[in-house]
Amino acid sequence: MTLFPRAVNETTSRELRKTFRSPSEIFYPLIFFVLVLTMFPFSIPPVPGLFNSIASGILWTAALLAISLSLETLFKADYSSGALEVIHLSGANLVLVAIGKSLGHWIISGLPIALLAFPIGWALDLNFLTLWVLVITLMLGSATMSLTGSSISALTVGLRGGGFLLVMLSLPFFVPLLIFGSSAATNASLGIVPEAELYFLGGMFVLSLTVAPWATAHAIKIRLG
């Protein structure tokens, strides 16, 4: 992984190592994803085939909620232990730390969820193209969420009602991802290759990659001072 700067590597390794030491926490985002999915059959009318026809949208919504809720953990532990302050005071490049944290968060939440969408979609009778499109859009979209979400997570770290405030602030910004992600999957289920949607999601990812880490670094400095 020498294509990333050292600080990014180190931060990502730290995040991964930290999470793998409390093994149960690895599964929380995944379990929540499936839990939300399970709520829908109970709530929508039992019309045969209805659930499967809106499955892509439901999968994307459940993924969105699971990832939004897991964003809180990005900076919480480091803020309350004072590690964030130590890292800042030691002159670390906070932009690289932000990228490392987002990458670590994506590997733990977005990536597993995207991969899990494949077998789940298969069980729900989605065709092959739809399954691939789902996985790719979820990977792109969740990476964007990890990046943009890191800025908002840094801004709201340690505040009363922090988790809820974080989700409330992030969801409006995730709506475009939801729109294009689920529309791509729906089009794929009709046999159309969703080029426009994929371009858009790619564009949003690049935008967030270039803007979010700086916003996150700035947010950390604001909250520490």
Binding site: R14, K18, S80, G82, V86
Partner: peptide, 13 residues
């Protein structure tokens, strides 16, 4: 070098 009140260590590491 500022040594603050909180120890600044990650507990799992």
């Amino acid at each position: 070098i500022y040594i603050a009140h909180r120890h600044g260590l990650e507990e799992n590491l």
